[in-house]
Write a protein that binds this DNA or RNA. Structure first.
Lengths: 246, 246
DNA sequence: CGCCCACTTGAACGTGTTCAAACGTCGTGG
DNA sequence: CCACGACGTTTGAACACGTTCAAGTGGGCG
């Protein structure tokens, strides 16, 4: 995969500053490129792992399955992110990480990551910061789940994903791919699939989005933002990144 | 405050191993001891901060307030934790941190923490791990909020707090302090205060707990664990710590 | 004594769930 | 080429969990 770390770099540069020496160090990281099929786990709940993966192409989600079969999706991840970087210090997975659609990931051994971090305090800070931003997103989701009505929550999720894709250049003109089926969106929102379907129809009826076959078109960004009360500061992006506006 | 870092050490030793040199380094940390009144913020949403605080005595919670006045409590914190350690790398607060009851905290400047971390890769790992465990707890809460009925969720919260207090020696014999009023518990569970009241009565009627004036007595740990489906592995405690049992 | 705060109770209401069935599309195999 | 099955989406209707509003209780403290 040519420029595997370019994807990682683009993401890192949206949340902090990368020096040239860091760039060189990252380029030297041994990465094993793997193609994951839809729904395939990159890491599974309960397992002790010795590698993390950077998402290069596609879409991933983290999730937890309950004894009764219920599932809660905890996060969606976009290219350049390292969804299971936390496993570097919490080697036993307390949830699973899967490809939402067919995706390309790059596995990096923990030993190689540790060696890299020893050599660059700046990358240490950046990687730590990346895990802290995951944490900030969890907090935001908790607020959405606990205190917001279904439509607003769904609108917020759309705003979040669009913003994340936009800043790495993977979304323009209010169109993007959200390769999740309604049941997955439901599991992310903490709702039933039936109600998620009706909530989507609500958003459509309000002329805020189109959503079909994993393709979203935002019809009114200001309308969505207002409904969602979306404020991107919790994403802790660099002050100089270009946020969506319109 | 004699042995301010002892409290911190006790917590750190439940999640990892601290060397003697680390102990010495920690003991040298300049700490400013402050008493916080009930409800008083140690750090507030939107502020840029240059210090973090270790909870020495009492109880804290993190929360976010919505434009409509609603509040979501994101976490409860027990002595020895550094609830806003994340602000080391996310200096702009995206939520607030407050004392749940009158508490003693020790403020540590970020510059001093950074200096410490530069000298000890082991403490860096431990501190990073601590923030990752916060993250793991957020994930668990998301599952509880999204996929569990109110009683089970409440039971889970009780199990979590008892376990955290137990491992640092602040709870024995199934009795502990949970100095939160019902409205705070409601805001933590994502429920209304009224329904939280009824859910508490439900737990009492099931003979699982007593709860009065911030004092909890667990009447049947196995019963609570079963109802909550409580599995402490998400707390990522050291394998050799003594978990509650009975 | 009187007020404030937290807790409690009742009753109507509403958002979201559950169960069940139907529809459409796509890929596969007869 | 069509039949079939799998899967995702959509719809209807009954139900339930949790909310909201409103009032009342009780203890602690000035």
């Amino acid at each position: 995969m040519p420029g595997a770390i370019d994807t990682l770099l683009r993401r890192l540069e949206t949340i902090g500053y990368v020096t040239d020496t860091d760039r060189a160090l990252l380029a030297d990281l041994p990465i094993r490129i793997v193609e994951l099929g839809r729904g395939e786990d990159a890491a599974s709940d309960g397992n002790v792992v010795s590698q993390s993966c950077v998402l290069l192409q596609g879409f991933m989600h983290r999730y937890k399955v309950l004894p009764d079969g219920g599932r809660q999706i905890l996060a969606f991840h976009t290219p350049g992110e390292i969804p299971d970087l936390h496993s570097l210090h919490l080697t036993k997975m307390d949830h699973s990480l899967a490809a939402t659609e067919r995706s390309t990931v790059g596995f990096i051994k923990h030993t190689d990551i540790s060696a890299l971090l020893e050599r660059s305090p700046n990358i240490t800070r950046l990687f730590w910061r990346a895990t802290l931003i995951d944490s900030a997103v969890f907090r935001m989701w908790m607020v959405e789940m606990g205190r917001r009505p279904a439509v607003a929550h769904l609108a917020h999720l759309v705003c979040e994903i669009y913003t994340k894709l936009h800043v790495i250049g993977l979304a323009r003109n209010w169109v993007f791919r959200l390769p999740a089926v309604q049941e997955e969106i439901a599991d992310a929102l903490g709702l039933s699939a039936v109600h998620t379907n009706r909530t989507l129809q609500d958003l459509r009826a309000r002329q805020l989005i189109q959503f079909e076959a994993g393709n979203v078109r935002i019809l009114s960004w200001p309308g969505l933002v207002r409904l969602a009360l979306f404020d991107p500061s919790y994403l802790h992006l660099r002050e100089d990144v270009q946020l969506p506006e319109g």
